[in-house]
Design a binder for these strands. Sequence first.
DNA 1: ATCCCGAGGG
DNA 2: CCCTCTGGAT
Length: 212
Amino acid sequence: MGRVEDILAVLDNMYPAAHCELNHTNSLELLIAVMLSAQSTDASVNRLTTGLFTKYRTLQDYLDVPLDVLEQDLRAIGLYKNKAANIKKTCQMLKTLYGGEVPASQDALESLPGVGRKTANVVLSVWFDVPRIAVDTHVERVSKRLKLATWKDAPRQVEDKLMRKIPKNKWSKTHHQMIFFGRYHCTARRPKCEECPLQGPCRYPNIHPRSR
DNA sequence: ATCCCGAGGG
DNA sequence: CCCTCTGGAT
């Protein structure tokens, strides 16, 4: 069995039910939750959206509210001023350009302020079931440690290499498994290397010989 | 390359 | 205290 196949098998075994952990009940809520997740934990986002999605139920609710009020409603999360402005502008564009719906196209999504490639990929994959691999901080770190990419690769290059190495029908599942692995096991700061079933393919011990 | 930017963990 | 969190725009 090849190296990549081994890694996928281990991830399947560790996280058979990996999934999107951002709470949402429709495409607008998912889009906003992903926008809010920039440089924030999903736990923080969910804590915030519990109340937010109760207060803001429709697209129009975001359009009607004054910017400074929305800012205060997002205050508990990082980058809240940027996020408030982007959400308001994005909702305006959804209304005027996309019939009040979240578009299912990569270009349309990325044209929205505050929505880049990573956010677009998550929405496409999670909501529209389009095969994509969103490269966030976890996926990037895990990919580099497991030698699925090199240390110098930018997120876009990591994405290309993953798409080449992973069967397309597994992109979405593997994406979430890498998130879980990065979030709960192969953490940025003190990865649990001693109890890791992926020590074989990992380069981390060679780069940080005695760290833990 | 830098800025935005709060909360939680170690 | 310092680091990290499903980034994006300039």
